[in-house]
């Protein structure tokens, strides 16, 4: 996230947040119930709308930054592959035929393979970005429901009309450990297939 995005998040799209007007003092004898202040008309600028827009910014920025990490991992992977190729070429040189040199070269090749495996592991772990994004989508969904409920209740303001991705019914079962739900999913698939056959 760069400084302008940080500033935008802090100030709500570059604008300083509006200071709410002070509520009028209640009369000593009041027959009418207190009316809460009306929400602002723009659904994505203030209140829930602003929070939704901030969460959207967080998800898009984290996706972009995750892709930068992936770019770096790709680059490391390519460099290790290049290094392995250079070492393979070196092994054919006459001066590299002594057993001591060959052992050392094999050790370097082994270390390179370990680096490559770790790079792939790190790439796989980047799945957390998509999972976190979907959890945030779920939170946004709840916030929008609250926002729209308040708009309905007060009969003023605008409902959000931006199309959102479909979201999971629940995030309670969404894990962060790879293959945490594999056995569960496989047993459901197996049961479904047996039922279909039967």
């Amino acid at each position: 996230m760069d400084q302008s995005e940080i500033d935008a998040l802090l100030t709500g799209g570059g604008k300083a947040p509006k200071k709410p007007k002070a509520a009028p003092k209640a009369p000593l004898v009041d027959s009418a119930p207190a009316v809460p202040p009306a929400p602002h008309a723009e659904p994505h600028q203030d209140g829930n709308g602003h929070v939704i827009s901030e969460l959207d910014t967080v998800t898009s920025v984290t996706e972009r930054e995750s892709n930068k990490v992936m770019d770096q991992l790709d680059q490391i992977s390519r460099l290790v592959a290049r290094q392995q190729q250079l070492i393979t070429d070196m092994m054919r040189h006459e001066g590299a035929q002594s057993p001591g040199v060959q052992t050392a070269i094999h050790q370097v090749m082994g270390a390179g393979k370990e680096i490559q495996d770790k790079v792939f592991e790190a790439m796989d772990l980047m799945q957390f970005q998509d999972i976190t994004r979907q959890k945030l989508e779920r939170i946004v969904h709840h916030l929008r429901q609250i926002h729209d409920y308040i708009v309905d209740l007060l009969g003023t303001g605008l409902k959000g009309d931006m199309e959102r991705p479909s979201i999971s019914h629940t995030i309670a079962q969404t894990g962060t450990t790879p293959d945490e739900n594999k056995a569960h999913a496989d047993s459901v698939i197996e049961a479904f297939k047996s039922q279909k056959k039967g």
Binding site: L125, Q127, I131, G175, E180, N181, K182, A185, V188, I189
Partner: peptide
């Protein structure tokens, strides 16, 4: 969800996060 996907025509199902 898994059953709904299978009924829709999915042949197999993987839950994220997954291993290679």
């Amino acid at each position: 969800d898994i059953v709904e996907a299978l009924q829709a025509g999915v042949n197999n199902y993987v839950v994220k996060p997954f291993t290679p």
